[in-house]
Amino acid sequence: MLRLSADKLDKLFSAISDAKELYLPVEENGSSKFDKWSEETQVNLNRLNTVKSPKDLFFPQSEDLMRFKKEGKKITVDTPDENCKEFVVFGVRACDVKSIEVLDRVFLSEPVDTYYESKRKAATIVSLACSEPEESCFCNIFGIDATEPAADVSTWLADDYLYWEAKTEKGEALTESIKSVFEQAEDTSAVDAQKENVKAIIEKLPLSGLNLDYFKNNDMMDIFNSEKWDELYEACLGCGTCTFVCPTCQCYDIRDYDTGHGIVRYRCWDSCMYSDFTLMAGGQPRTTQKERFRQRFMHKLVYFPMNNDGEFSCVGCGRCVNKCPVRLNIAKVIRALGGEV
C-alpha cells in the first residue's frame, strides 16, 4: 500500500490531471456533483453521496446519438466521435462502484451500447472507503463492503493520510504514472482500525437490518400483486427525483429533434414514474401512478435479479431515501413488503 499526507491531496489531483482529466466530488452552489478538477474547484471528500451519481460520466442525462442532414435527395448521417479521452474518477464510494457494475451488466451485454462502452473503457475508477456512513446507507444488505471498495484503485482517508492501493491493471498503470507523489506505507494499522470502526457503525445503522429474503424467495407475481403497493404508492408525486438521483436507474428515451438545420437524434434519462414512460402507439402500459411506482421497485428488486444471476439493481446508496420530496423510498418498500428482520 502507498500513502500520501492528506494535506497534499492537491498535489495528487494535479499530478493525475497532468495526464488525464480528473473528476471528483465537488461542492458547488448548494449542491454537489462529480465535476472536473481544477485548482479552483471546491473538492468535498466528506460528503458520502453527491446529488447526482458518477453515472453521468458514463451515461449522461442527455446525449446526442446521431445527426441527420438532408440536401436534395442526399441524406448524411453523422455519429459523434466515440473515442472518449481517458479520464480518472476519484472518490467513488463502494455503493457507487457497485452501481457501475450494475450499469455494465446492462450496457455492456450484447448488443453492446457503444456510447457507454467508449466512456467506460476510457475511465480509471479510484474509490474511497467510507469513514462515516449515514443513517440512509444500507449498502451492506446488498453485500457491499463500504470499507473495502472495489474499483481500479481503492483508497482510505485515515489519520491524516490517504492510503492508496491499486487493484487492477488500469489502477497499476495510473499509480505508476504518478508514483512520485506517494511514499510507501509501512504501517497500515490506521486503515485496519478504520475498517473495524466503520463496520461496527454500519451494524448500528437503522437500515442495516433490512432483509431481502422476501424478494429472493417469493414468486414474482405474488410480489407484483401484493396488496401493500396500494398504501405504499399513495403519497408518490410521480416526479422523477428518485430515478434521476439513482446511480443504477438506466432507462432512457430516444427522440428526434428538428433543429431547423437537420435532425438530432438524442437520448435522455427517462423515469418509470412519468406518465409517458414507455408510451407507444397503443398507449401507456402503466396507466396509474401505483403501477409506475411498483415498476421502479419491481425492477430493482425482482426483475433485474431474475435476469442477472440474482444481483439486485439497488446498491443501498440512500440517495432516493434522502431526496424524495415526500420521503418515500426503497427502504420503506423493502420493509413494508416483508423485509423485516
Binding site: N29, Q61, G238, C239, G240, V245, P325, V326
Partner: peptide
C-alpha cells in the same frame, strides 16, 4: 443545476393541469 426531476412542479398546488405541456 436543474435535473428536470419535476419535483417542484408535481408538488405545487398551482400546477394541477391534467397533462403538463412539458409531458
Amino acid at each position: 443545476k436543474c435535473i428536470r426531476c419535476n419535483a417542484c412542479r408535481n408538488v405545487c398546488p398551482a400546477c394541477s393541469c391534467n397533462k403538463c405541456i412539458f409531458d
